[in-house]
Amino acid sequence: MKIALMRFYSVELLDGINTFIWELYKIFTSLGHQCFVLTGFCRNKESICKFFNVQKPQIIPVHQFYEKYSYRNMFKEIISWLKRGVKILRRISPDVVIANGAIPVPDSIMGLKIVVNHDLEFRKNLMYLYDFFAYRSYDFVISTSTELKESFRKFFCYPLTKIIRIPICIDTSKYIVRSSGERELALLHIGTRTEKNLITTFKIFKYVIKELPETKLYIVGPDTPFLRELLLKMKSTSSNIVFLGKVSKERLIQVISSVKVTIVPSIYRVPVISPTVLESFSSGTPVVGFDSISADLLKNNFNGFRCSRNESPKKVSSKTIMLLLDDEMWKQFSRNALQTAKKFDSKVVASKYLKLFNAVKSN
């Protein structure tokens, strides 16, 4: 089967959508399917191999890279997809198109057309109108969480019969599981973009080290001026904070399995399935996160703590400290985290997509 995976923007970015795209790419190719990745642009294929652990990816860029975001540049990109992107799809002639985000695909493109909706961020004015019509050019919309499925239906006035819930996935076999005794008394925060809410992690950490002064905080993600500013403000605890920057997939797996708890205070409009939480659970690492993480994944008092985004950093830190100190609780949460991760394994999720493909084909 020929499968075209698509993303409007770059598939090099270190974010959850690209993590999902490359996990799906790897599992489909391992099952013998021919996969292509169409992307807005691609400047460095080697970085994809390094950060997403992909061998010889089949990438087809659609348009040139634009330094600045603007409606004008976005319009140029849409035209590129309608011209060059459509030509590429006709040349490839895929059996299935899986778009990540609303990419314009005309009816003339044959095969099953599916679009994956990962979130409802930044949908205002022209962007909303564009998405409203672009999503309707697909046969099905995949919503990755229960909350997102219902919100998508209301937000876009979309027929529920054409929305299917299938989560993002992860290859759980690639992750390392360590016991509590083999881990460092440390927390982990992944991501330095605004929505990752690093400032709240720092506030939580300030309370944690008052009770447990030897605790460390590891930060993974791109270096930014905002991050440097935050680090300067945390000068009094700088010896406890370790900024690792952008790391390879192999290094990330090592770090996740070496800490006791991952902190995920991300803020999203509608709860999402977080790759950071998935990766943590695949290593048996419990998570303290906000209710921006879907209850499909993070379950309070089961595989971590799912806190209200309105809870104070002090209250969240008390739960974090409890998890760091109570070894029996940590072990139970860790076992439950591993159990949860299995439901999101690449093979399980790929089978759901293949089941959909076959059901449509048989009809």
Rank of each mutant, 00 (worst) to 15 (best):
V86T: 15
I88T: 06
I88P: 04
I88K: 06
I88G: 03
I88V: 15
L89K: 05
L89A: 04
L89P: 07
R90A: 06
R91N: 14
R91T: 14
R91P: 01
R91H: 13
R91M: 08
I92K: 05
I92M: 10
I92D: 03
S93P: 03
P94I: 06
D95R: 12
V96M: 05
V96L: 09
V96P: 05
V97F: 05
V97S: 05
I98H: 00
A99D: 00
A99K: 02
N100G: 04
N100W: 06
N100C: 02
N100D: 06
N100R: 02
N100S: 09
A102C: 09
I103P: 11
I103Q: 01
I103W: 06
I103F: 08
P104V: 09
P104F: 03
P104Y: 07
V105S: 05
P106D: 14
P106I: 11
P106V: 09
P106M: 08
S108L: 14
I109A: 03
M110T: 14
G111L: 00
G111C: 01
G111Q: 08
G111S: 08
G111F: 05
L112V: 02
I114P: 01
I114F: 04
I114D: 02
I114T: 02
I114E: 05
V115R: 00
V115S: 11
V116A: 02
N117C: 14
H118D: 07
H118C: 11
D119R: 04
D119Y: 01
L120T: 01
L120E: 00
L120Y: 03
E121A: 07
E121I: 12
E121P: 03
F122Y: 14
F122T: 11
F122G: 09
R123L: 15
R123T: 09
R123N: 15
K124R: 15
K124Y: 10
K124I: 06
K124V: 08
N125K: 14
N125Y: 13
L126E: 12
M127A: 15
M127C: 12
M127W: 13
M127S: 14
M127N: 11
M127H: 13
Y128T: 01
L129A: 12
L129K: 10
L129D: 10
L129M: 13
D131S: 06
D131Y: 01
F132W: 13
F132M: 06
F133P: 08
F133G: 02
F133R: 13
F133L: 15
A134P: 09
A134Q: 02
Y135E: 01
R136S: 04
S137Y: 04
